[in-house]
Design a protein around this nucleic acid. Structure first.
Lengths: 243, 243
DNA sequence: CGTACAGAGTACGCAATCGTACCGGGGGGG
DNA sequence: CCCCCCCGGTACGATTGCGTACTCTGTACG
């Protein structure tokens, strides 16, 4: 696995990992380890964001929620990034929700500490801004994708994105949960996932999805997957993981 | 019209307008006036962005394009913002296209000059980052909206967003053009626009759309319009325009 | 060992939108 | 002045996905 490449040991947050020693030292008093448990809601819409999260493993979904109870994922954060950039951009709240999708762990920093360090203008600023740009591309592509691409391709793309941010090929996911993320019916996911399984690309059973044929999935996925992946690699360094 | 409010004279870019005099003075040698003509493409996907655009009037659409020729708008920039933030975030290219939707004018700065001034960490940095956050919210909400909201509501929302950034109520827009922005069929826009017209909310004729009943449009629009608008007002100041 | 329940399979009619195509009118250019 | 073409109205079947609802089956728990 390329996950052992120098740039990105597995289970280490890649932004923190790329900080020069002295910057990391400055920040470390304000960093505390945390665990991310499945389904944890880090923030509800309009909640003040008191801490910024740097996952080491697991994934966090950024989700837009609607008055009628509907919801759609707009972005995913794994160990390649950070949740809470809004605080360095100038706002302690966002209208979106952040919830843990795949469990894992990570570090978090208080918003004030991070903002203070950001203002220093060092490497951290640079990394956070580059990540912001990559994240914007991810959201933008999702916006377009949600409109024009049919479910099968979007499901394949979503599984790949999650898989890129997960330690193995086996993902603990239910159709129900995937449906919430993709903004469709649970039954719709069952149908689409069934088709992917028939083609031998994935296998699933009661709350588990296993990726069997990564290349096949990429072929089924809509073109949005490579677009975003390439941008992440270009902006945050390519090492085959979480890109 | 509230467009005469102190913070935001009509036809002045609100980011440049909020700069302290000395910062504006530092930048002014690198600013040049430009006109934005309908249909101009400021940048094609993957083109290096040599200049950052600050519209005074008119609107610029950020559009995602697909291999099959399809396209969807992911965001709009008017005099409340800037096109090209990606260069200060760390990348001279984006995978998206920027095209002029409503003609107007504005200023542009060379990417290097802007990046240099941004690094100074003054008010410009603050303004650009806050705008970035607002823009992220706009894109995110669009991502979700594109998936779950029917065309009528999305069309109403889109017209309101454009109207907020236009000097008057009369917009030079064809159904064809709107269809490209919303990522639907031209015929679909004709049908939806017909319904809005039947309800007396808008009137249109050969390339012109006039907003007759703003409040009615807001009532028909999906909930995404107020969500984004409030964020823009909160982050960039409220003056009733371009928010 | 039994039961309760979450997760998944499936089916039905329906609504929205698609892709396409053809038509008519208005207005600008030759 | 006329013609052409851009713009908009409309129609058609096809498709995708929705809402709902009923069923079945692992599996966790008592």
């Amino acid at each position: 696995m390329s996950s052992l490449s120098a740039n990105s040991p597995p289970s280490v947050n890649r932004i923190l990992n790329q900080l020069p020693p002295e910057e990391y030292k400055r920040m470390s008093p304000f960093l505390e380890p945390i665990t991310l448990a499945r389904g944890d809601v880090l923030y509800y819409p309009q909640d003040p964001v008191s801490h910024v999260y740097f996952p080491n493993s697991g994934t966090v979904s950024v989700v837009a929620t609607f008055a009628d109870g509907g919801s759609v994922e707009v972005g995913v954060v794994g160990n390649e990034g950070v949740f809470g950039i809004n605080v360095v951009l100038g706002s302690v709240t966002t209208p979106h929700e952040a919830m843990v999708q795949l469990p894992g762990d990570g570090m978090r920093a208080s918003s004030e500490a991070l903002r203070r360090e950001f203002k220093q203008g060092g490497q951290l600023q640079d990394l956070l801004l580059r990540y912001t740009q990559a994240f914007i591309v991810q959201i933008s592509q999702t916006a377009a994708c949600n409109k024009v691409h049919p479910l099968d391709g979007r499901l394949a793309r979503w599984l790949l994105m999650i898989c890129d941010r997960a330690p193995g090929q086996d993902l603990e996911l239910t159709h129900e949960f995937i449906a919430v993320m993709l903004g469709t019916r649970r039954a719709g996911v069952t149908e689409a996932a069934g088709r992917l399984q028939d083609e031998g690309l994935i296998r699933y059973r009661r709350g588990h999805v296993t990726v069997l044929d990564r290349q096949g999935l990429e072929a089924t996925s809509c073109e949005c997957y490579p677009v975003v992946k390439k941008e992440f690699e270009r902006l945050l360094g390519s090492d085959g993981r979480a890109a």
